[in-house]
Nucleic acid binder design. Sequence first.
DNA 1: TAGATTGTTAATCGATTAACAATC
DNA 2: TAGATTGTTAATCGATTAACAATC
Lengths: 226, 226
Amino acid sequence: MNPHDIPPVVVGRLPLYLRTLCYAQQEGLTTLSSHELGRRLGISAAQIRKDLSMFGEFGKQGTGYPVAALIRQLRRILHVDRVWDMALVGVGALGRALLYYQGFAKRGFRIALAFDNDPHKIGRRIGSFVIQDVARLEEAIRGADIRLGMIATPASAAQEIAERMVDAGVRGILSYAPIHLQLPPEIKVEYIDPVIYLQRMTFYLGGQPKDDDEALLATMPCGEHD
Amino acid sequence: MNPHDIPPVVVGRLPLYLRTLCYAQQEGLTTLSSHELGRRLGISAAQIRKDLSMFGEFGKQGTGYPVAALIRQLRRILHVDRVWDMALVGVGALGRALLYYQGFAKRGFRIALAFDNDPHKIGRRIGSFVIQDVARLEEAIRGADIRLGMIATPASAAQEIAERMVDAGVRGILSYAPIHLQLPPEIKVEYIDPVIYLQRMTFYLGGQPKDDDEALLATMPCGEHD
DNA sequence: TAGATTGTTAATCGATTAACAATC
DNA sequence: TAGATTGTTAATCGATTAACAATC
């Protein structure tokens, strides 16, 4: 089965199914129907059945899907039946929050390396991490054979860091920098820019400008986007 | 023009166009073609022209789109030609990072209220923010007439907080809690769960489990998902 | 004029939904 | 058996792309 035969939109939903099945398991459920899974996610039951049927027949008529077995299958399909080491670049406020975030370890991801270019930060410990000099990025990533990277640098540094990560063997990047990265097509990239999500909502909100401080907006023709 | 006549997938791209145009403006460009904008975003030129044509005719044959004017138009369309106040609930490591994040203010968003339920945090200052008791959430949000909320609480608290935000007048929620919220359909919700993004990438990575610590995985049948 | 680029149409492509036989 | 639910097909729906006349 070639992963590229699976529509990306289907791949995008699989982690949501897995996450929701985990909650169901914690509630003590041993079986879950496509209807109930869909209700919990705001997705149609038909869509869930169609998505899952691309990978096999996991359910049973009359009863639904066995929770534990489907979790195992989804973890296998998503390759999260193992622990993934990650490299983090940029230990500002956001990078620090990522270092402290328990949700990664709980779900099979581990920050193995953390880099910054600030001499005041290099060598310091944050939690159990020692911040390393970003100058040694390639060397350290190659040495640890790491395939996943996270970028929490200013936008101005992101492209260069991404290219160096890829040089060092990284194949997937989660970038918090508000800029689109130019990388070879075989490299997987996902982006998290909270302002993009906010603007997708304000499009629908409209209404009275509560706080349209024209002076403030004048000094912010666009946003500096460091 | 009814916003719901615009396909959501088009709305999703508009903020990306705006962000990229802002960078182009900072580079000193006064004009940008759909081809160049698409190149910078990994989107086809035809798609960009089609998206923008839903809102008007902004370009000029032979030269492309005037950067400054299109930025103004997109800001108007997305309703970010004003400052939006937001309420933040949950001031752990992530909430703190959000409080310090300069990118909100630079792009027209401002955290006006920050709440937590931890007595040790309530009343304390973080940067210029005073953490308020989440018990006063409805009152404070109504008083400030706030329409946007951000949730950075554990998943277990997110649903209740979301409902209370909506009661208080919030119409759009950006949630960092790894759970799907059940809310009335007119409420806009966007989710940021970094593990979901990582799993969308590991699906394609596969390869040798570098670090498949079976013992670790045994203690983590799914992830506790606090 | 010549080259470039828009806005728009029609064609293609892909995703979602409705429906139902199979079966637990 | 009766009720519920899957896996799958066909139909519908929506999004993307290719192409080009218009025009700067």
